[in-house]
């Protein structure tokens, strides 16, 4: 929605972190995102909801320039992180992604040990001076990922040997270990069973303390449970954006209402 007053109402939980203006994304000739404007705040969980193929994941991947890895993808408009345009020619996507971490739909631990999985980011970014430093970073990350107690005795076992929910929390710990400022989560629970989902959701709420969290989900219940702000995407457009409670109880746009009541999607 272009109505900025609404956004102003919604932002109470933190200061502004990311602001996107008139973002368009093209895959070859087809346009996947049409003129999206969004503000994302610190210490807030922002949820992107909408039916499949509405562009919510595509937009999420614009925020840390993961779309750069797809040849035919083209992004226009501005996305600012702390006031700096992340699509500026001078910006190195590698440096950006260190600040804007990401967790994916399917848990994707590397075929390495649990320890090496978490230490991977700190190692490539040079965050630890010594082995003991690194141990500390890994432990902190695993604690923040709420998985330390489960794996502390088998840090050197392969990460692929964990259960699905544990793997996803390991991936979150891995993302947290590089000390990002924003954490993007692309349907992090879609491959998990309900118990694991509950654990991850609880974790997301804790993560809000330290990061700006953006989560894509197609479960409206999940959005309602974990997020403070919600953006509803439909056919590549941002239909409505506001405080979660308001979106679910008092949607302004008829399309949002149709989706929430289950008539589209």
């Amino acid at each position: 929605m272009k109505d900025m007053s609404q956004i102003a109402n919604a932002v109470e939980t933190g200061t502004n972190k990311i602001s996107a203006r008139d973002v368009n994304v093209f895959y070859g000739d087809s346009q996947a995102i049409k003129g999206v404007d969004v503000e994302i705040s610190n210490n807030t969980v922002t949820a992107f909801i909408g039916p499949s193929g509405c562009g919510k994941s595509t937009f999420l991947r614009c925020l840390n320039r993961m779309n750069d890895t797809i040849d035919i993808c083209r992004v226009t408009g501005t996305i600012r992180l702390d006031g700096e345009d992340i699509y500026d020619k001078r910006v190195d996507p590698v440096q950006l992604r260190a600040k804007v971490g990401m967790v994916f739909q399917k848990p994707n631990p590397f075929p390495k040990s649990i320890y090496d999985n978490v230490a991977y980011g700190p190692r490539i970014h040079g965050l630890a001076r010594s082995k003991s430093d690194l141990d500390e970073v890994v432990e902190r990350a695993l604690r923040r990922g709420a998985i330390w107690n489960e794996v502390k005795d088998r840090l050197y076992a392969p990460g692929t040997g964990l259960s699905g929910g544990q793997q996803q929390r390991l991936c979150i710990a891995r993302a947290v270990a590089t000390e990002p400022e924003v954490l993007l989560m692309d349907e992090p629970c879609s491959a998990l069973d309900p118990i694991a989902t509950a654990q991850v959701e609880e974790l997301i709420d804790e993560l809000r303390e330290n990061f700006a969290v953006v989560i894509v989900t197609h479960s409206m219940q999940q959005a309602a449970r974990v997020s403070q702000n919600t953006a509803f995407f439909h056919l590549g457009e941002l239909v409505e954006y506001g405080e979660t409670g308001q979106i679910f109880t008092n949607p302004q746009d008829p399309r949002t209402e149709s989706y929430i009541t289950g008539r589209i999607g």
């Binding site: 700096e84 190195d92 600040k99 040079g126 630890a128 001076r129 500390e136 970073v137 590089t178 000390e179």
Partner: peptide, 20 residues
Amino acid sequence: NPGQSAGNPIGRAGSLLTKN
């Protein structure tokens, strides 16, 4: 954060526009 102490990390002090 231990990263801050490790010389010149990607820490939040640095601007995105300059490559460290």
